[in-house]
Design a protein around this nucleic acid. Sequence first.
RNA 1: AGAGGAGUGGUAGAGUGGUUUAUUGCACCGGUCUUGAAAACCGGAGACCGUUUACGCGGUCCGGGGGUUCGAAUCCCUCCUCCUCUGCCA
Length: 424
Amino acid sequence: MLSLQIIREQRDRVIESLGKRRFKNAGSLIDEVIELDQKRRDVQLRNDGILSESNTLAKEIGLLMKTGKKEEAEKVKSKTSELKKQSTELSAELAALESELQQLLYSIPNTPDEKVPAGSGSEDNITIHEHGALPQLPESAQPHWDLIKKYDIIDFDLGNKISGAGFPVYKGKGAKLQRALINFFLDQATAQGYKEIQPPLVVNEASGYGTGQLPDKEGQMYHVTADNLFLIPTAEVPITNLYRDMILSDSEIPTRNVGYTPCFRREAGSWGAHVRGLNRLHQFDKVEIVQIRKPDESARALDEMCAYVQSLLELLELPYRKLLLCGGDMGVNASITYDMEVWAGAQKRWLEVSSVSNFGSYQANRMKLRFKDEQGKTQLLHTLNGSALALPRIVAALLENNQTNEGIRIPKVLVPYTKFDIIG
RNA sequence: AGAGGAGUGGUAGAGUGGUUUAUUGCACCGGUCUUGAAAACCGGAGACCGUUUACGCGGUCCGGGGGUUCGAAUCCCUCCUCCUCUGCCA
């Protein structure tokens, strides 16, 4: 969530920036925040005064009791009783205002970075880089949902039987390819200085609030109601929340973590024609990189992370393009997002395989993740993350682009991991 | 899962209803001393909110939440976590 300080000090800039998202009522919501904040401070000022007086009198009573002046103590007691009544009312009012303010702040998305173009949907995204020639496949080229049947490597019917739609079963070389990709991605990240983390796959409510899945996107996560836990939709959630409620010392910054986890998404109501096969799943594997940076370094870190993700795609010999998302197409937490899309030759479509974002201080403010600056003042840190990479669509593109009469060719860099060079 | 015990500042650990603005040790930072360091000595140091041009001042915080009281780290309720024993289990 946006910090009150920024809203107070930069009202006009915040409203203008939110306009790039086509976010409705930005002006009136921001003004409502400012008004509530002012009210809250007025109430606190009054309440603090009463508490202060009451604290002084309580000490007086203590002294009077000790010296045996009971009647005088009783007199003072009646005074403090009255103060207490007033304070109880004001405290309740304060709590209500704080909660209202909190709800309001949760409903306001992050302010897009200067570089982010205004726009409402994918048509306003900007392609800033393309790499690799698109493969020229014969007319007989098959989409991956046919190839996985042909080679019997991924089975949706079996998944359907034991779990439901969107839970594929990986078999034989299909399973080995998954494992190879995971290990390859983890090794590459480790070589770049990322620390490998194996987090829990379920998180509590506080973690959901920390990274912004709650309260708004609750329906996207699987909820274990008996224990009030949530299956993680991405490793971003547990790995970023490792640092919740912390003031990091200089020696701990930056953090560069990488984690492989399955990801669980309900994807309620988002199934349609383009999501056949591996294009969209309820459970999928992903390797995620997460960084925590000081504010003046986060822009550079974002470039570094993009360059790293691009290097993976190049090693896998996949044609890709890099998009700068417009305001309306970004997630509500992000201040700037680059998407990487690979070309799937048989579907003749670009598939998103990575989303690399800088969240600025938006998540850090929710999580109370801070550091001490040179003046010794506590300041919010910046959080960033990116997929490196999400597996299913990588597999889809590899299968489609690398199909030959002899079988599916495995990219050179993966062969040491798969121990085979063709799926035939 | 059952029984018992415990959660206090960076850490260890006192405090069981009223000068507690929470002892003290260690670690940390600054200073004195020293050629330099160590030791010794002196001093400093938390988070959040509010207020103030500023120095400051006020409020809240002793695992989380709620309650009793004029007053709670201390008493009560509830939840969480850890430890010990018993049970179960990969």
